[in-house]
Amino acid sequence: MKINIKHIAKLANLHISDEEGKKFEKQLSEILNYVNQLNSVDTKNVEITSQITDLENVTREDKTSPSLSQEEALSNTKSKHNGLFKVKKVL
């Protein structure tokens, strides 16, 4: 399977060198080949599902619970300004 490593790196927001690109391309191909072994399993009588927990309808009532304080919310970042997270300009 052909892998477009530059595209994948971009989607993952990662900057990688050409050298790294070659390395990861090889590794990802190997992983895909490994997972592809699943294609040999006969799934004719297996029901399609998007999950394996068997759980359904796990919901909550529309009730509020306490939130973090502003200080707590911002406690993991050094980049802040007037109670807001601060990042490099986007757009």
């Binding site: 909550r60 529309d62 619970s65 502003q70």
Partner: peptide, 24 residues
Amino acid sequence: TKSKMFCGCSADYFGQKPNTHTCP
């Protein structure tokens, strides 16, 4: 709604102090 979509934080955010209605 009173609370947010996937957590119990208040969804009534309009005009509130920034980052006071959040949780993990």
